[in-house]
Every structure is written in structure tokens, then in C-alpha cells.
Amino acid sequence: MTLSLTKDQEARLGLELAAKRQEHSDLDAAITTLTEARLADRMLLQRLKKRKLALKDRIVQLERILLPDIIA
């Protein structure tokens, strides 16, 4: 299924994708730091990991919209 996006929609989705990638990276760093320093309880780590997974799902969704598979 191919979506026809306006330049404005494409730009907004591109900005959202960049923001989600950055947030995902930041969460990954925070989880690593908290785990290594043993500063967080299991519930906090579980919440952060769940948020990270939700971000990854949205990133994949945005990538599929912006970078559709090209059948060769």
C-alpha cells in the first residue's frame, strides 16, 4: 500500500521520526547507565524498556510510511 503524502506531511513525519530516534537513543543510554550503576529499581527499568519498545514500534511505522519498499 502506497500513501501519497504532501511535502508538509512528509516533513512533519520526518521530524517526528528524528525526534523518536533521538528519544529511543536517549532511553537506551539511560537504561544502560541506570543498570550499570544499579540506581534504578526493577519497576522503573521495566517502564523505561516498555517506553523504548513503544518508540521502536513507532519508528518502524514511520519508516514504512516514509521509506516504502520498492519492488525491483
Rank of each mutant, 00 (worst) to 15 (best):
E63M: 05
Q9T: 07
T35P: 15
T2Y: 13
Q46A: 14
A11C: 12
E36I: 15
S4G: 03
G14L: 09
A40W: 05
R12K: 11
Q46M: 14
L3S: 09
T6G: 00
T2A: 12
L45G: 12
Q9K: 13
A40K: 02
E16I: 06
I65L: 06
R47T: 04
K49C: 08
D69W: 02
M1D: 13
L66Y: 06
A19S: 08
S4M: 09
R38N: 01
A54S: 05
A37I: 06
H24K: 02
D26V: 10
E16A: 03
A19E: 08
Q46G: 12
A40T: 02
Q46S: 14
L44C: 10
T2M: 11
A37C: 06
L48V: 07
A72F: 09
L39N: 02
Q46K: 15
K7G: 01
D8N: 09
K20L: 10
I70D: 05
D41T: 11
L34E: 13
A37F: 01
R47K: 09
A30W: 11
L67N: 13
L53I: 01
S4D: 09
V60K: 07
S4W: 10
A11I: 09
R42C: 03
R21C: 08
L3R: 12
L45R: 14
L13V: 12
